[in-house]
Design a protein around this nucleic acid. Structure first.
Length: 478
RNA sequence: GACCCCAUCGUCUAACGGUCAGGACUCCGGAUUUUCAUUCCGGCAACACGGGUUCGAUUCCCGUUGGGGUCGCCA
């Protein structure tokens, strides 16, 4: 049977990076093996599930570059792919389990069970269900009740995990878990098994917070008479302090990283590289990951989230990207900064190129680009830089340069370079004498892109205007 | 607390019984450069501890310690 994997998020919020990592692992595994990647929505919690969350999760996955063959949006042979639309099926399976003696009704109330757990805890025992109605054979008329599935009482359940290796869990630790709530809705551990079976899933790869659920699920497969898939439990992503990554560690949603200007390529690269490696290679394209990444090579210990390394990877990806493509990616960030992008359309690529080597994120790039977009009159000057570079003879120098640049008919790097070199040669000056005053004149700051990069990004008219304005500022014409 | 999992530089990792324990991020130097950045060199930094097994353990086994996860009519 060919490989079928799935990612099954619950639409109760945004897609977090742990989920993204799980989805990516499944995606890569499917692509490498020529298998099928199924996307399923686990919306069995009607209170918290929202359609808008589902839509956002799909968009986030698509942004990352993931593609699925079957899912709620594209359909497929096992539709529907939303659990809320499959309740009849779960109900039918539960009835079957009941009929064949693998499940039973229990009319203990939540309050009773809470009290039971409290008493057990107080007595120093493990809180657990006491199987009170396992053999009672209650009928459907026993009042408000749940349906529980029978777990074996002795022996051990063995799980041969692709990542963790062999895991053995004593059956006496397995509670007879609820599969149908008293309101008739099914629970997660039940629907996940029914769906994975119905949808022909052959490998279940998910976070290792599910390891303890797996033995119970295996027994549900057995009770259903279904074939048990293989399992791969990915270690959790940890925060900088070593505990499971959560909101208190800062940004955990994939979207927040996109919004801070992390490239999808870099995120994909970082996520795959977390807990996995291939020799000394650090940078991987999606195509390389598809051929190289294997679930079974993922390490079995948790990995901490390292923002510094993500940023480094991001900068590496930014540097290596074609300027035209990078410009396209920057547009939303320019707009977020309020830049009048349309007015600078023809110089956008120059602007982006000027900042490409100095931006860890797209937000950094956009913010450094401010001086290119701001109207000349609104350019803000760093007083220290002005005091240091815009004084005395600098004014004369800037005026001469402005005159020469104004006369150019070709606004290209070779032409600009020739003009600057000629001026320097005539005056017997070094580049350093010219570059800094020009930089302050054009950007208002003492640090910034290279000379020609600034000129190219700014264009002839604005460059000349800023040079003249700075000249006047440094050395008012007498 | 019970059960499950994990354990190499600060972080991500390589090593699959014999290596000066390698690479990357961070950090610190130096070089290049029109500033900054980039780039290029160089440096600091790890086998958690204790027992075994073995001629020989980072590597295999056991224990300890430490960390994480799970113990719902949430997913």
């Amino acid at each position: 049977m060919s490989l079928r994997v799935r990612f099954a998020p619950s639409p109760t919020g945004h897609l977090h990076i742990g989920g993204a990592r799980t989805a990516l692992s499944n995606f890569l595994e499917a692509r490498r093996e020529g298998g099928i990647f199924v996307l399923r929505i686990e919306d069995t919690d009607p209170e918290r599930s929202k359609r808008e969350h589902e839509e956002q999760i799909l968009r986030d996955l698509a942004w990352l570059g993931l593609r699925w063959e079957e899912g709620p949006d594209v359909g497929g042979p096992f539709a529907p792919y939303r659990q809320s639309e499959r309740y009849d099926r779960y109900r039918a399976v539960a009835e079957d389990l009941l009929a064949r003696g693998h499940a039973y009704r229990c009319n203990a109330s939540s309050e009773e069970l809470d009290a039971l757990r409290a008493a057990q805890t107080a007595a120093g025992e493990d809180p657990r269900y006491d199987r009170r109605n396992r053999e009672a054979n209650l009928g459907p008329d026993c009042g408000p009740h749940v349906i529980r599935v029978k777990m074996p009482i002795e022996g051990v359940t063995v799980l041969d995990d692709l990542i963790k290796g062999r895991i053995e869990i004593p059956n006496e630790k397995l509670d007879d878990l609820v599969i149908i709530r008293s309101d008739g809705t099914p629970t997660y551990n039940f629907v996940v098994v029914v769906d994975d079976h119905d949808m022909g899933i052959t490998l279940v790869a998910r976070g290792d917070d599910h390891v303890n659920n797996t033995p119970k699920q295996i027994h549900i497969y057995h009770a259903m008479g279904a074939e048990v898939p293989r399992f791969a439990h990915l270690p959790m992503i940890l925060g900088p302090d070593g505990s499971r990554l959560s909101k208190r560690h800062g940004d955990t949603s994939l979207g927040s990283y996109r919004d801070m200007g992390i490239l999808a390529e870099a995120m994909l690269n970082y996520l795959a590289r977390l807990g996995w490696s291939h020799g000394d290679q650090e940078v991987f394209t999606e195509a390389e990951l598809i051929s190289l990444f294997r679930l079974q090579d993922v390490g079995s210990s948790g990995a901490r989230w390292d923002m510094d390394k993500l940023k480094w990877l991001n900068q590496t990806w930014i540097q290596g990207m074609a300027p035209a493509e990078l410009t396209h990616r920057c547009l939303p960030f320019f707009e977020a900064q309020g830049y009048a992008v349309a007015e600078h359309q023809d110089r956008l690529v120059h602007i982006v190129s000027a900042l490409q080597k100095r931006s860890p994120t797209l937000v950094d790039l956009a913010s450094q680009a401010r001086f290119f977009f701001v109207p000349d009159a609104e350019l803000s000057f760093d007083e220290a830089a002005v005091g240091k570079h815009l004084k005395g003879e600098a004014g004369t120098l800037l005026r001469s340069l402005a005159a020469r640049l104004a006369a150019l008919s070709d606004w290209s790097e070779p032409a600009l370079s020739a003009a600057c070199e000629a001026l320097l040669a005539e005056l017997g000056l070094k580049m350093g004498k010219l570059a800094q005053p020009v930089r302050v004149a054009l950007t208002g700051q003492g640090v910034g892109p290279g000379l020609y990069e600034m000129l190219l990004g700014l264009g002839q008219a604005r460059s000349v205007a800023r040079l003249e304005a700075a000249a006047a500022k440094a050395n008012p014409p007498g």
